[in-house]
Design a binder for these strands. Structure first.
Lengths: 110, 110
DNA sequence: TCAACATGTCTACATTGTAGACTCGAAGCC
DNA sequence: GGCTTCGAGTCTACAATGTAGACATGTTGA
């Protein structure tokens, strides 16, 4: 791992989705959020591998669903960013923002 | 390659830098632009591998430096996005933008 | 002629992304 | 109770992307 450990693109999307979903940050919802925002398919495998890697890096934490009552078996996990996770995400978003600034018209990100 | 071929994070930064530098989009400058924006080191190897991969995907093109007159040996290459490259970049930036919207305060991207 | 320099190439490997089959256990139905 | 359905998560194997650093090549100027 490089010392200025940066985020891959999918990792970035996952962290953003968790931040955005806040207390609703369960894996299935994260998946839907990314699929919607990025207009692309996200398999469970891809998502869980990434979640695990982010946890290993100390960028996120989870706890068992504080309010269950659904259908399935295994309890869901509620994810949240850690302080280092938020910091890494900030850096990552800042890089894109810096290079994007002034190109809004060309990029159509009105 | 997935059919909805998405950009890796470094690829995204490289395309953004090229777009931004416009007619000054030579490899060394691209490198500096990314190092500055992302506050991280970028080796030549990393950059050229990525440029080559992006070219293979048809996302960028290059031509020999139209106005030479520098020091070194091999002529520089001037890079530019292709239409598909711009499209892919738009998609990629749009995903980040969509998930970022409303989180400006938290992310400090004022 | 030769050192310094500016680009670009090559090789080998590490990290991240992806797909899809599989496991687990609770809930509902009969 | 036994069986099916379902939601969530695990596992394995591989593909794509990212990274480092040594090397090559040709120009310039002392």
């Amino acid at each position: 791992m490089p010392d200025t450990s940066s985020l891959g693109d999918f990792e970035q999307l996952v962290l953003l989705a968790i931040l955005r979903l806040d207390s609703d940050a369960y894996a299935p919802g994260i998946r839907v959020a990314i699929e919607t925002a990025a207009a692309r398919r996200v398999t469970r495998g891809a998502l869980y591998s990434t979640l695990e890697r982010l946890e290993t890096k100390g960028y996120l934490q989870w706890r068992p669903d504080p309010n269950p009552g659904r259908r399935g078996g295994v309890p869901r996990r509620q994810f949240a960013l850690t302080a280092p996770g938020l910091k890494a995400l900030r850096r990552s978003v800042a890089a894109v923002t810096a290079l994007t600034r002034g190109l809004e018209r060309t990029l159509g990100s009105a």
